[in-house]
Design a protein around this nucleic acid. Structure first.
Lengths: 140, 140
DNA sequence: CCTTGACCTTCAAGCGACTTGAAGGTCTAT
DNA sequence: ATAGACCTTCAAGTCGCTTGAAGGTCAAGG
């Protein structure tokens, strides 16, 4: 016979923070669990499965709106596969584009850093900041 | 003789949104410009240089707190190079670590997507979602 | 029986970097 | 005179939570 679990326990089992679980419940992403006589939330093993699933979606950076939709489909007995697929491809594309941006950024930051390393702190500043000004000019 | 510029014009010249410029001013990141008799902000050519510089810092994803510090140093006649260097290396490290995370994520999303492509929408769902459940199991 | 400490509760506010909207004023051209 | 394209301020919304305050509950130990 399985014992009911407190929020801290399901948090530990799912990898979500207790505050995040309460937050999801407040947004109707997660169903409200039973309560003990004193008002504590009681979770079941099924709840833990759902929390784990939600944690996985969030680890994949699914937006909460999508998580809500997917969890609702599941609650209605429908397989959320189509919704999951749609978010998967949208997220994957967004993240790949973000990676491209960040890579450009990282290269620029590192090259600026290299350039800055050679300048003294009191380098006479003719414009706002020599390190960042007119970035397309010579690398010295 | 140079004509004063309205916020929309300096926004266009700097790449910042007018709303962002007002926001920076409200946070004392940017100095408050002169105003016309009717209350419009009037910007000078120097202001545009500063706005461009700030736009560049933000394009490099410098946090606003750092931008504030750097702009303040400059206002006090000090070269902000040390502060810039410090943010550069911190930001570069943070962004490279973020890239690593996102690359792992992208790989996982794409492989899940591939796996999902082969499943019908009404695939009998034995758990919350077959596509995402027990991700370490066979790729079918 | 009482206290300690670790848990739990709710509600409100804060984070970062803005954007958006409402409600209104100004300026230029027709 | 009016249209429309600017500008102003202020408040609230976005996203995904976390943190803090103020308090209730519960088991163990003295």
């Amino acid at each position: 016979m399985e014992r009911a679990l407190q929020i801290g326990e399901v948090a530990a089992h799912s990898g979500l923070a207790a505050s995040a679980i309460r937050y999801y419940e407040s947004l109707d992403i997660l169903p409200a669990p039973e309560r003990s006589a004193s008002g504590y939330r009681w979770y079941t093993g099924e709840d833990v499965d759902l929390l784990r699933f939600v944690a996985r979606l969030r680890a994949l950076e699914f937006p909460l709106a999508d998580v809500r939709e997917i969890v609702a489909l599941r609650r209605d007995g429908k397989a959320p596969c189509a919704a999951v697929r749609s978010t998967l491809s949208r997220e994957a594309a967004a993240i790949e584009s973000r990676i491209k941006d960040l890579r450009r950024l990282a290269i620029e930051l590192r090259s600026l850093e290299e350039r800055a390393r050679d300048l003294p702190d009191d380098w006479p500043t003719v414009c706002v900041c020599d390190v960042l000004e007119s970035p397309k000019q010579a690398t010295r």
